[in-house]
Every structure is written in C-alpha cells, then in structure tokens.
Amino acid sequence: MSGETIIDSFGNADYYITVADDALALVAEAYGFSEAKLAGFNGLQPGAVLAPGTKLRLMPEGPGIGASGAAVVDTAGIPTSYTIEHDDTLAGITYRFNVTADQLAEANKVPFVQEQGNVYFVREGRTIQLQKNPVDSRSGTGQAVENSWGTTVFYTTVDGDSFDSLGYQFRVGTAEILQYNPSLVETEPIPAGTKLRMTAADLPVEGARGTYTADANGIPLTYTTVAGDTEVQVAARFGVTMLSDANGPTSGGGGVWYQYTHVPSGELAAGQTISVSLDQPINMPGLDS
C-alpha cells in the first residue's frame, strides 16, 4: 500500500486514498480493522473493488450511539469541533472522532475528560475541540518547577512558547493563564524567560478562599480552610491529586484527620490547616516530618 494517509493534528489516521491494486481487506488489515468494519465506515460491501483515488474513511461516518450530534469538519474532512448532545458519552465521542481521551483533554486544555471530582467534561450543550492548533517546535522546553504531586506550579518560558503551546502541555486554558499571570496580554507574545504561575494557588477561588504557606521556591505546603471550602476545590487550586494522600486519619483505619461540615458535598470545617504537600504530610505514620 502506497496511497496517501490523511492524519489529524495528533497523527491519527482518518482517511486513506487508494492506489492501483489496493484491496479493502488489505487496507483494513493495515489500519487494524476488520474488512466488515472498514466497509461499514464507507457504505461498501466486503470484497468491494476499490478504484484508484478512492478516499476511504478510517473512522465512523456521521452520528452514532454516544455521539449523536453534528460535527464541524475542515476541508480535509477532519472533525474539528463538536457540540455535545443529550445521552452522549465519552466512549461514543472518542470512538466516532478517532481520538483518545487524553488527546481530547489536550485539545481542550483540561487535565482529564473522565468524570472526576464532580467535574463533568461531557455535558449537554458544551462545544468541545477535537483538534489542537499548530505550535512552534521550540515550545515547551523551558524549566518547570513541580509540586510533590508532579503538577507544574511554575514554568519559565522559551522562544516559541504561546498560550496554545502552554495550554496543551500543562492542560490549562488561556483564560486561566491570564488569571494566574495578570501581567500577560492575550494578544501579545509571551517573552522568553518569563516565569509563569501555572496553578491558581495565588488566586482564591469558589470553594477554596483561604490562605496558604509555601516553601522557599513558592511551592504550597499547607492551606487553612474558611467557610464554604470543599475538598475538590482546594485540591484543584493547588494542583493536588488527592488531599487524603497527605492527610491521614487521626488514629486507626482509613479516612482523613480533618473535619467536614457536610460530607456529601465535601464541604470542610473552617479553621483547619491541611497539608497540600506529600513532602510534609499530616498524620501519616512514618512519613510526618
């Protein structure tokens, strides 16, 4: 097979253009499909003869179970955006548009698209991006300073960095970068050598409005709760995966030492100083410093 493969922004093969002597079964095998599935994608019967120059779809055509709405496509037929319909699912969307969940998260500059922490990516009426924009090959090579969970807290830019390149790499939207770094202007290039904050630590947010302490490098260590704070929002503000990993039970079995005012919502009692660092845990036997 020597025909042209049309790929998306992630390198996923979406179409194949046939040449002389190509056969449906051989094309299907080359791209990891059964002949029946590839035939179904293209409205053909298994065994159909392929004329040279036939543009074969390597992904489902049109609406389907779990992705029933209309998509926007570019001139090459690559899906670029999609508005979520009622009863759509993550599995349906990734299957129909030939992208992985991680690629979908990258395109939308979010940490994850799975349902986590009561944050739902797949929501009816939401328009999502299915591709990413081109970025400079020099981007993303600056110095990153991470917290103990591996989340980048600070990043020093290099030539070629842009809001898109930073957003795709660190899964943070342009609006958030501008909030965290008020000296930046969206319509102007980001100068090389700029030290950017990549989390909301300095920005009190709904559900995490308290104060925090940090080490000499500015990495948050502890957080003191105020009324209305929730576990999910505190974790999100400081780029923490699981607060319980740094806050063990007072004694005995599982759970955490800190108290709630409303357990189902994760609302925390005010006035508690909670660890937001795996390096300085609280009530973790053998690990507390």
Rank of each mutant, 00 (worst) to 15 (best):
S2A: 13
I7F: 08
D8E: 02
G11L: 12
N12K: 12
D14C: 14
Y15T: 08
A20L: 12
D22Q: 02
L24K: 10
L24D: 00
A25N: 09
L26T: 13
V27L: 05
A28Y: 02
E29V: 08
S34R: 11
S34H: 11
A39Q: 02
A39K: 02
N42R: 11
N42C: 07
L50Q: 05
P52W: 07
T54H: 00
T54R: 06
L56C: 03
R57V: 00
G62K: 05
I65K: 14
G66P: 03
A70F: 05
A70R: 12
D74R: 08
S81H: 02
E85L: 06
D87H: 08
T89D: 02
T100Q: 04
Q103D: 11
L104D: 03
E106S: 00
N108E: 04
N108W: 05
K109S: 07
V110C: 09
F112M: 09
V113C: 05
Q114E: 15
E115P: 10
N118A: 15
V122L: 01
R123H: 10
R123K: 15
E124R: 14
E124G: 10
T127R: 13
Q129E: 13
L130K: 10
Q131L: 01
N133Y: 07
V135Q: 03
S137M: 11
R138C: 00
G142H: 01
A144E: 15
N147T: 13
S148W: 02
W149K: 01
T157N: 06
D159N: 14
S162D: 07
F163M: 11
F163H: 11
L166N: 05
L166Q: 08
G167T: 04
F170C: 02
R171T: 06
T174Q: 14
A175F: 05
I177F: 08
Y180W: 15
S183C: 03
E186T: 11
E188K: 13
E188R: 13
P191K: 07
L196Q: 11
A200K: 02
D202G: 15
G207Y: 01
R209V: 00
G210N: 09
T211W: 04
T213P: 14
I219C: 01
L221G: 04
T222K: 12
Y223K: 10
T224H: 05
T224Y: 02
D229I: 12
V234Q: 09
A235W: 01
T241V: 13
P249R: 02
T250I: 15
S251L: 09
G254Q: 09
V256G: 06
V256L: 02
Y260L: 10
V263Y: 10
S265W: 03
E267R: 06
L268M: 13
A269R: 14
G271E: 08
G271V: 09
I274R: 00
S277R: 03
N283Q: 09
S289Y: 07
